[in-house]
Amino acid sequence: MPAEPTGSAAHGPDPSEPRASARAPSCATSPEARCREAARGGPRRPRRSFLQRTLEELLAFLEDALFAERIAAVPGLLQSFDARAKLLFGVCLAVGLTSVHAALPLALALLLALPAASRSGIRPALLVARVWPVTLGFTALLALPAAVSWVRPGAPLLQLWTFADGETLDVTRPGLEGVLTLSLRVSSVASWMTALLLTTRWDRALSALRSLGVPAAFRLVALLSYRYLFLLCDLVRSEHLARESRTPHLPGRSRAGGAEERGWVAARIGALLLRANQASEEVYLAMQARGAGIAIRTLTPPAWRARDAGLALLGLVLLVASVAAGR
């Protein structure tokens, strides 16, 4: 059984979860388990076939979607705000943080995401394990060439190499500061956006796009797309599971790379496309049968409360302050 996402979460396990975890490898059972294993450098296991990899990715996606739905349903700090206020706050914060060029405020924003997540039912360790290895680690790795003297000259901090002509390759102070600032910026925005999105129900988040002026047609397409994503995922999972169950696992035999397997994957993609085409026709006919046309009717959004307006205002103030400080 996957661990509960929060210590205070007063809700039972999802009934669909034990079935999924019974078939899935341990790394695909829960986001926490995956994060723990990723932090340890990944589980040790034999090389997986393309079928197993696709199945694991599908399960991981479904697990993440279920996990997000569960977190969004838990009472907490960020859950208590209206989705529109959170969306405005999130956009203002993202734009504001991308305008900040000093490491200290970015580090502060990054650290503040942890108590906000904690009070919203997301364990800080989970947020750290879920976001930071990718953002802090990957960004630092990607931007590392920019820390050396060839790309960013400046005061040397660490000498990496001395060439025959006496020239040196160093890690420079301005280079390292630039990498640190970039990593902190990427991580702080990602941490806050993850916390905000995990605590917002998907349908509410899409409805909230209305407050940003996103056309109703786009919102409906995105909502339908999200719903049918799971149908198509299930279709792909069934096909891959069927083939995997029919494939003998002989020791010493290569399990991927054959021309027949490549043809099979391409044919599955083609068949998925045909199925999506067919499903769109069925959905259209169903919509017609119910009298739905292009006109999109949405529920009247709830009135803004003082706390929602406060959060949106806080976002605007942070945006203005960040832009002013960044100039």
Partner: peptide, 28 residues
């Protein structure tokens, strides 16, 4: 009127197709 379900399913297809693992010679 067909645009909404058509685009929605095409969007879902584009999302799911990125999860397919394509076998490459050499086992990767």
């Amino acid at each position: 009127a067909r645009q909404v379900p058509y685009l929605a399913l095409a969007g879902a297809f584009s999302f799911v197709v990125m999860m397919f693992n394509f076998p490459i010679p050499g086992g990767s």
